[in-house]
């Protein structure tokens, strides 16, 4: 049961989940916002692929670019229009705002496109399979691993080597003090949303390629996965999010192969129950860091 195919599948699933979790935790780290609209960035990117590839027949590289840009743009705009004015208010006000943004975006798509699912066309090479040491693996599973690796390296360079990255790490630690250095609060927060959108856009490409379709509720499942991965891994560090993503991918795949067929429909409930139980013993997640609870304004 645990063979090379399982390992690659788990790695690819874990990579995808790590991307999802990372995008969520970047914003949470700085703004202490649990962003319920995050799933909608993924959904919008999916519709961008639909528009570009299915309707306009754009070449695949352009399609992928448009998808990522769409997610980045929506993420940035939601910050600018909805979250910025609510920023100094209670954490619940922020969360409820993000929930409202999520409902808003879903219904915009519902009205403008359709409640029904739309097919998306992905690059031809996504559906190829290749053989590695006797195991048959879809090419897109290898792609997601590679892309995630590149993004993780790029992101960690950004955070370590650039001033904006330093400022973001500083802001996640002490937001007000970061402003006392002269770093504009809006710059840090907008950058976090832009990166969050970028990660959502890339993740979306791989997410919608699994079902090859997109509908207004496409964002719900990846959002949940990101939530669960983040709380499992630890919501106070980007490393925690990545670890959480991979752990979630592993547990998911293990449950898929070990649960009896009659119980498989309860798999999600099982996952959440496991996470809730886990959190009771380790409320800060796998990767523990000093709790900073300063709020941002």
């Amino acid at each position: 049961m645990i063979d090379l195919e399982f390992v690659i599948n788990t790695l690819s699933l874990g990579s995808l989940y790590a991307l999802l979790a990372l995008g969520l935790v970047l914003v949470y780290g700085i703004l202490k916002l649990v962003n319920f609209a995050y799933g909608e960035y993924i959904m919008i990117a999916g519709y961008a692929i639909y528009l570009s590839a299915t309707l306009l027949h754009a070449p695949w590289y352009l399609t992928l670019l448009i998808a990522v840009l769409a997610a980045v743009l929506v993420s940035y705009l939601t910050e600018l229009i909805a979250f910025r004015p609510v920023r100094s208010q209670s954490p619940n006000a922020l969360i409820v705002t993000s929930f409202a943004v999520s409902v808003f975006l879903q219904n915009v798509v519902l009205i403008m496109v359709s409640p029904r699912a739309r097919p998306v066309q992905l690059p031809f090479f996504f559906s190829r399979t290749i053989e590695i040491a006797g195991a048959t693996v879809p090419l897109r599973n290898l792609l997601v691993i590679a892309v995630t690796a590149v993004l993780l390296v790029a992101l960690s360079l950004l955070m370590k080597k650039t001033v904006v990255g330093m400022a973001m790490r500083a802001a996640a630690d002490k937001f007000t003090t970061t402003r006392l250095m002269g770093v504009p609060a809006n710059l840090v927060i907008s950058t976090a949303f832009v990166i969050s959108g970028l990660l959502a856009g890339v993740a979306s490409i791989f997410w919608v390629s699994r079902s090859a379709s997109v509908d207004p509720l496409t964002g719900a499942a990846p959002l949940l996965i990101a939530f669960i991965a983040v709380v499992t891994g630890g919501m106070h560090s980007t490393l925690g999010a990545v670890v959480g993503g991979f752990v979630y991918g592993l547990v998911f795949n293990l449950l898929s192969v070990t649960l009896p067929a009659s119980m498989i429909s309860y798999r999600d409930a099982f996952m959440f129950a496991l996470v809730v139980v886990f959190l009771l013993f380790r409320p800060a997640g796998i990767i523990k860091r000093g709790y900073t609870e300063e709020r941002v304004g």
Partner: peptide, 21 residues
């Protein structure tokens, strides 16, 4: 016992568990 992020997410997850059941 949970606060902040963990509390929001676990209660959210609990609603999903109730829904799945």
């Amino acid at each position: 016992r949970l606060n902040d992020f963990a509390s929001v997410i676990t209660l959210f997850a609990t609603l999903i568990v109730i829904h799945v059941v």
